[in-house]
Amino acid sequence: MTEGDWQGNWKARLYERVRERGYASLTAFAEARPTASLIALAEELSGDDLNAVQVFSGLVAEAEQSHQLSRLVRGQLVRELWEGLPDGWPAVLDDSNRFKVAKALGLWSGFTPETHLDRARQAGSALLATPPPPGWRPLGPDDELLRTLLPDEEA
């Protein structure tokens, strides 16, 4: 993140870059890359004048407008799991793996909007109490297990 990221109308810059890549929304752009980190999304959109925080801010705004916050929260968990657990869910939660899982879940919580924080904590606890199969890596926000843990909100 640089000071230049915040210069000028960064929101207009963000959406202009999304449209230049043929997408009608930032959400559509991000969902075409469901396992890419927020940093990777920002880098693809800007090179050096947008950042991950700005991308996530735009995604939250769109999710709020479309009543899709649960989907956004699931999608961010996918991104954090791909980043933090590149080999998928560990077969055994030993000390090393427990830290990797806790880090991924903690980073995810940090990006979870306040309205969904309790549900996210419950989902994280459920994953730890009843771990998914070894190697599990959800491919996107519509993963069956994730939809069970964090169902869509009523519109």
Rank of each mutant, 00 (worst) to 15 (best):
E114D: 15
L77D: 01
T130H: 13
A120Y: 00
P113C: 06
R13D: 01
Q54L: 10
L85K: 00
S46I: 05
G75F: 05
R74S: 03
T112E: 09
G140A: 04
F56Y: 15
A123V: 03
D142R: 11
E144W: 12
L50K: 04
T2M: 14
W136Q: 12
G22I: 07
P138I: 03
K103G: 09
G22P: 07
W136P: 08
E16S: 13
K100D: 14
A91I: 06
V101A: 00
E44T: 11
E3N: 13
S66N: 11
R119W: 10
F29E: 00
Q68N: 12
S96W: 14
Q54I: 02
D95F: 13
H116Y: 11
S37F: 00
S66Q: 14
D94H: 09
R19Q: 12
A28H: 09
S46N: 06
R79H: 03
P151A: 03
L77R: 02
R147P: 04
P133G: 11
A40E: 14
F56T: 12
R79V: 06
T27S: 11
D87A: 12
W136E: 07
T112G: 02
T130Q: 15
P132V: 08
P86I: 01
P131M: 02
D142V: 03
R33M: 08
P131Y: 10
Y15P: 11
M1V: 15
Y15V: 00
E153A: 13
V101E: 01
S125E: 15
R71T: 13
L41R: 04
V55W: 06
S25G: 10
A42Y: 04
M1N: 15
G84C: 01
S66M: 10
S96D: 13
L117V: 10
T130R: 14
G135P: 07
D94P: 08
R13A: 04
L41V: 03
L85M: 01
E114H: 14
L72E: 05
P133F: 12
F29Y: 07
D152M: 06
N97G: 07
F99L: 15
D48H: 13
R33A: 12
E31T: 07
A36R: 03
F99R: 15
N51M: 07
G88S: 04
S46D: 09
V73D: 01
A123Q: 01
E31H: 02
F99M: 11
K11T: 15
A123M: 08
P132N: 02
D87N: 12
G4N: 14
A24E: 11
E16P: 09
